[in-house]
């Protein structure tokens, strides 16, 4: 397993993860999904680093991945605070809500009217009621402090 083909296969998996993350961060507009895509790029890098570490029999790659994990945790904490702040200002998780910050030479993103989506509202399973309904006193229910 300590071979060049194994290294190449693992590197290709890392490259695929990295590219998919790049597509996600370029294309999606939801801030949270963009962050998920950024984390996915970090995952691709981790896979590549561990593959190199395996190939050379050296701990360096694995140590680097530990620091990648640390920085990812910090990044997620700070980024989510900013996302929450942005959400409380605009009421949307939309990256285009902040397009007034764009370069002066860039055009404005204009949303066109979307066709109605015909996806049905989600249905959740319900349990059939079993047993007898317990007797309740309506007055007592109204006076209860905690329900």
């Amino acid at each position: 397993m300590q071979s060049l083909p194994m290294l190449q296969n693992a590197l290709i998996v890392g490259a695929i993860l990295f590219s998919l993350g790049l597509v996600g961060i370029l294309a999606r507009r939801n801030l949270i999904v963009m962050f998920l895509a950024a984390e996915m790029m970090l995952q691709g890098i981790s896979v590549s680093l561990v593959a190199w570490s395996r190939y050379h029999g050296d701990w360096g790659g694995q140590i680097l991945v530990i620091f990648v994990l640390t920085v990812a945790a910090c990044e997620a904490a700070i980024a989510l605070v900013f996302v929450l702040g942005a959400f409380s200002r605009t009421g949307r998780l939309d990256a285009a809500a902040w397009q007034s910050l764009r370069e002066a030479t860039l055009g404005r993103v204009i949303d066109r009217e979307l066709p109605a989506s015909d996806t049905l509202p989600q249905k959740f399973p319900t349990l059939t009621p079993a047993g007898v309904l317990p007797e309740t006193d309506e007055d007592e229910l109204l006076q209860r402090e905690h329900v």
């Binding site: 597509v23 370029l26 999606r28 999904v33 509202p121």
Partner: peptide
């Protein structure tokens, strides 16, 4: 429900080509 900004992408063609 689905927000409108979840149903569209920024430049889907360019992004897909760049990634590929």
């Amino acid at each position: 429900g689905l927000a409108p900004y979840d149903r569209v992408s920024n430049e889907p063609l360019l992004a897909a080509v760049a990634g590929a």
